[in-house]
Nucleic acid binder design. Structure first.
Length: 557
RNA sequence: GGCGCUUUCGUCUAGCGGCUAGGACACAUGCCUCUCACGCAUGGAACACGGGUUCGAUUCCCGUAGGCGCUACCA
């Protein structure tokens, strides 16, 4: 058993988009397989015909493609153990169901779902098992001829696994150690349904894992309770000696409150629970995806890997290849992990800032477009292009090799919009920087500064400096912070000379004029407290944009 | 209800009988500075509870409590 080639599988059912928890399960399977030079199989478990969702299979495949987790074989990847779609393996399952039937390990049952429901209502904690099967309508209680007659007449039936009570079954779990449960609490699970001629999960799973020579089953903790059943099935088939090793992963829990992570939590708290955006074919509902939200696949993979596993040291940032080397099932934690989407964003930040500037441009284009910055002429396009490069340089810290606090490309806009759009309002009440730096005489000082600026011909950083620096010394006016308010609208942005040189003389003067005219107090309580205007309503002024500098317009120079 | 798994800072976690219980995210403060950010420094913050075992328990065992899962002709 130990000398077999490692083979693991990820086997989702195509009932909808791939949950992020499923992604982690697949990732761990991948890491384990690669570390041991083994194969990762992609199998589709579509044995529940009623829950099939069109497009789900393609979605799952595309998700892993984006995430960069490759499969070695399976649906869409080829391989010698196919078909890999369970709905295409009906004949195989029927054959093995018969083996169990012939060996007396399973039996036919004719009880209808309605009858069973009724029974469950009548008898508290009713369970179809050794204690009750003698009272039900099945091949153990009927004469052989009747069973054959019913089947021949086309009556619907199921095949149930005959579980012998009173036996302790031990599952040796790679993460949890030995888990022992008594067979008496297990019910006679349905293995096969005549209605759609398909097996249930349990039978199909065991048969496939055996036939596909799977050596390790790494799956979510929700399967732990049925693991003993699976052990029993391997025994019933006589496959106990090649039974895979089991590892049951802890679940992903919702960030706040109790319970496991669900789609709802994502919608409510504003983070995706699916790798890709998903358009539900039935309801038409759209669920957000990590890709569309601006996450990098490496970041998602890295973050997910650490949710329930760690390399045993303090290292947090690592590539897939590094993880392959470091991964260890015995270092997986046993308890569920709350999904911390704030930290997910931090991981994205880490990977985002490593990307070269050229990678930023397409993302930036999208952000600009979303915010109405679109060039309509050749000339404008050239201007936008230049601005973009400048802004990217700025986000890089203007040569300081420092990176801005950007977790997603969309964060670029609030951080850099002032490059493209003049401020149209000043939130004095809510902005400490404005309150601190815009005083009663500020407008007057800026007015003075403007007259000096108007006389400058060389608008380069050096050119401005040569005039303004002496002027500040002479007058004692320190204009920078107020100047910043006028040009940016708040306490943000690069060095003022840099910014001013970039915006150009015309635009700078225009923005200053706008702020000065909006002034008396830059519009709020502080200037005239006694003139008890309604503070809450006057603190936020959006004076009409002066002529050309309308909101959203590209500033051309 | 039954069965199983689980329990270290707010969160993810390190720890595998003796530690000032470590790191990361988040938060706070300081430094830097014409602002923000970055960076650096500092700080607050945890062994669920009760019994054992032991010279000694965060660590091992048993309970209790909390959390999670399963309990379908779903996976």
């Amino acid at each position: 058993m130990t000398d077999r080639k490692v083979r693991v599988r990820f086997a989702p059912s195509p009932t909808g988009p791939l949950h992020i928890g499923g992604v982690r399960t697949a990732l761990y399977n991948y890491l384990f397989a690669k570390q041991h030079g083994g194969d990762l199989i992609f199998r589709i478990e579509d044995t529940d015909s009623t829950r099939f969702v069109p497009g789900a299979e393609e979605y799952i495949i595309e998700s892993f493609k984006w995430l960069g987790i490759p499969f070695d074989e399976g649906v869409g990847f080829g391989g010698n153990y196919g078909p890999y779609r369970q709905s295409e393996r009906k004949d195989i399952y029927r054959k093995y169901v018969q083996v169990l039937l012939d060996g007396g390990k399973a039996y036919y049952a004719f009880d209808t779902p309605e009858e069973l429901n009724k029974k469950r209502e009548e008898v508290e904690n009713f369970q179809y098992d050794a204690s009750t099967r003698g009272m039900m309508r099945n091949s153990l209680t009927m004469p052989k001829e009747e069973v054959e007659r019913r089947i021949a007449e086309g009556e619907q039936y199921v095949v149930r696994f005959k579980i012998e009570p009173g036996r302790d079954i031990v599952v040796d779990d790679l993460i949890r150690g030995e888990v022992k449960i008594n067979s008496s609490i297990l019910d006679d699970k349905v293995l096969y349904k005549s209605a759609d001629q398909l097996p249930t999960y349990h039978l199909a799973n065991i048969v496939d894992d055996h036939l596909m020579e799977v050596t390790h089953v790494i799956r979510g903790e929700e399967w732990l309770p049925s693991a003993p059943l699976h052990v029993l099935l391997y025994e019933a088939f006589g496959w106990a000696d090649t039974m895979p090793r089991f590892a049951h992963l802890p679940l992903l829990l919702k960030p706040v409150g109790n319970g496991k992570l669900s789609k709802r939590d994502g919608d409510k708290l504003g983070f995706p629970v699916f790798p890709l955006e998903w358009h539900d074919p039935k309801s038409g509902q759209i669920s957000s995806g990590y890709r569309e939200k601006g996450y990098l696949p490496e970041a998602v993979v890295n973050f997910l890997a650490l949710l329930g596993w760690n390399p045993g040291n303090d290292q947090e940032l690592m590539t897939l290849d590094e993880m392959v080397k470091l991964f260890d099932l015995s270092k997986c934690s046993k308890n569920g992990a709350k999904f911390d989407y704030v930290k997910a964003a931090w991981f994205n930040h880490q990977y985002l800032i490593q990307r070269p500037d050229t990678d930023w441009c397409p993302a930036f284009d999208k952000v600009l477009k979303e915010n109405g910055i679109e060039a309509t002429t050749e000339q404008e396009a050239e201007v936008v292009r230049m601005m973009k490069l400048k802004v990217i340089e700025y986000t890089d810290g203007l040569g300081n090799k420092k990176k801005r606090n950007i977790s997603f490309p969309s964060d670029l806009w609030p951080l850099t919009k002032f490059f493209f759009v003049a401020p149209t309002e000043f939130d004095k009440e809510g902005d400490k920087f404005i309150r601190k730096n815009w005083k009663e005489n500020t407008a007057d000082e800026l007015q003075q500064m403007m007259t000096v600026l108007e006389g400058i011909d060389d608008w380069s950083v050096e050119g401005q400096k040569a005039i303004i620096d002496p002027w500040t010394e002479e007058t004692g006016i320190k204009p920078w912070n107020a100047w910043r308010v006028a040009l940016v609208g708040t306490g943000q942005g690069p060095d003022m000379y840099e910014l001013s040189a970039f915006l150009g003389k015309e635009e700078v003067l225009k923005r200053m004029r706008f702020a000065i005219e909006a002034d008396p107090s830059l519009t709020s309580p502080r200037g005239g407290v006694e003139s008890s205007n309604n503070e809450k309503q006057t603190n936020k002024v959006s004076a009409s944009p002066l002529g050309e500098t309308g909101e959203g317009s590209v500033c051309t120079r």
